Structures are given as structure tokens and as C-alpha cells.
Simulated scan of single mutants.
Amino acid sequence: MATVLITGGKGLIGKALTKKLTNKEHVVNILTRNPKKNNEFLWNVKENFVDKDAFYNVSHVIHLAGAGIADKRWTNERKKELINSRVKTANLIFNKVQEFEIPLKGFISASGIGYYGAITSDKIFTEDDNNPENDFISKNCVEWENAAHQFELLNIPVSILRTGVVLSKNGGALKKMNTPAFLAALGSGKQYMPWIHIDDLCELYVKAVEDKSFTGIFNAVAPEHQTNESFTKLLGKVIHKPVLPMSTPSFILKIALGEMAYILLKGSKVSYKKTANMHNFFFPDLKTALTNIYSGKQT
């Protein structure tokens, strides 16, 4: 049994992960700006404060904190917020682990497939590709991961999950896609959409806690390559919603979303092989994943 401290524990992934960890009899502490429960502890990044009690008996930290990438238009101020919400929070934990002399067994951090850049190509990106594109989404992920890697200076093993589009019945990308009366592909529709079912993603985090060999960088994506067009068509079939024959024009998305539109209009294949060697996917294909989510059987 491990005691795990989670940042971002009240988000979509954090809530599902907390449930999975506690079902496996691990103890979960959550850092929040508004603690209400016994396992919730106060932290304030601006004031460089973390309740020391949050670290009691903690063996692992799972760093999920970060403002939503697609929640708001990317102004210069928003870009700073996106990076700081990931990097400054990790730095605060790093400083407190040293200050309180916490003997962590592992630091486990989220990251994104945006590490490889907002591009569409024939290349299948692997964890060994260390020359990301020089765009904002890539820079954001690089700084995010660098903040995680600093824990290695304390001889603490680090695991990083470069996560694709997370599929869940409780929110996230599917909720946004399913809001209009009709579904439609975006731009050319030929851009790839690496995805993962939230149950598989949470299991990967659990594995990082329970398995000492699960360290390093892993692409948290399902073993299947879907384009935006094929994803949209299959979603329409599963939820019985019409799919427009014409896609949403790129220029409309660029006008509406600005620079952020590129994470919707671009996308390449991301390799799942390293992860699949360590984890048997519950939902290896999109049809199975969507059917599970919309049948109401998701855990």
C-alpha cells in the first residue's frame, strides 16, 4: 500500500485516478486551494505554501496540475498561465520535498503528445524523438517535462505520461465534441487524433506507483491510429448522431480560436509500442472505448 499525493486531484483525471487508487487500498492525499475533505490539503503557489501534513507518509507524487489547454483562447497572458500552472507547481513540490526531506519513491507527471508539436506528417513519433517542433504546445510540454526531470537530481525515479485525447463519459473532449446537434470533422479531417480511454490512463498511473520498472517516458495513447475524420464518423455511429458531409473549414476555427486552432487542425501518429509492452489495454480500439463510455458501464 502506497500513500500518493496528487496535484490536480479534483480534475477529470484526478477524480478517476483517486477512485482507482483507493479501490486498490492506496492512500490518496490531494493538494487543493480549497480543502474540504480529510484527505485534502491546502497549497498556494503564489505564496509558496504547501501544508506539510500533505506529505505525511507520502511515497509518490502524481503531478496532474495544469490549466486546461483548450479552455481559453491563447493570449500571451494565457500562455504564461498554461506553462506556470504546470511548471511552477512542480517547482513548488520539488522545493518542499527538499525542505521537508521527503523520501519519495517516485515522481509521476502528466505531459502531452503536444510535445511532438502541432504538425501532420507520416512520421510515427516515439518516446525517443527528442527534437520537438518549435511551436507553443511543444514548448509547453518541454518545460513541463523539464520540471519533472529535476526530481532525478534528488535520485527520485521519474515517470512521464505523454497523454493523447482522454475519452471519458464525465467530461473532456467527448463532451465538447458531442455538444452540437451535428458532428463534423475539423479542417481536412486527415490529422491524426491519438486517444486513450480514461480507465487505461488511470491504470498507467497506478502502474507507475506499483511497478518500480515503470519509469521514464511513455506515450499514453491507445494502440490504434484514427484520423479526425474517422474518429468523428465512428463517434456518430456509436451515439447515433448525424455527421455532416462537409468538415468545419480551417479558417473558421482559426478566426474563432486563434493560434489554439492548430492543436485541432494538426496531428500525427504517436507510437504506443513502448507502453503496450508494459500494459495490456482494456480498450485497444475506438469502437470498444466509445461503446463502453456511452453504454454507461465506465468505471
Rank of each mutant, 00 (worst) to 15 (best):
G216K: 03
N178R: 06
I198P: 13
V166R: 15
C141D: 06
P157M: 11
S138H: 13
F214A: 10
F218K: 01
N95F: 15
S138G: 14
I137D: 05
V165H: 02
D211T: 09
K176S: 07
G112C: 09
P132M: 14
N91I: 03
G216F: 07
R162L: 04
Y192M: 07
Q150Y: 02
T163G: 11
N140I: 11
F214V: 09
S111P: 15
V97R: 00
S168W: 06
D122R: 11
G172K: 13
N155F: 12
L154P: 03
N178S: 14
I160G: 03
C202V: 11
F182V: 11
L201M: 01
K190S: 12
N134D: 15
G216S: 09
K169I: 02
F100V: 08
N130E: 13
I108R: 02
H225C: 09
A220Q: 08
H225T: 14
D129L: 10
E224H: 04
I113C: 05
N134M: 00
A222K: 14
L174A: 03
F151Q: 00
L183E: 04
I108K: 09
S138W: 00
Q191S: 11
Y205D: 02
A208K: 14
Q98A: 12
A110K: 00
I108P: 05
D199M: 13
K212L: 13
D122T: 12
Y192R: 10
Q150C: 04
S188C: 10
I124M: 05
S188F: 12
T89P: 10
Q98M: 08
N170F: 04
V165S: 04
K175L: 15
T126I: 11
K105W: 13
Q191K: 01
I119K: 08
I113R: 06
C141E: 01
G164K: 04
N134L: 15
S213F: 15
F151A: 05
V158K: 04
Y115T: 14
E203F: 06
D129C: 10
S188T: 11
S159G: 09
N155E: 12
N130D: 14
D122K: 06
M177K: 13
L92P: 00
D199C: 10
L201E: 10
Y116N: 13
N146F: 10
A118C: 14
K212A: 08
W195I: 08
S159T: 14
F136N: 05
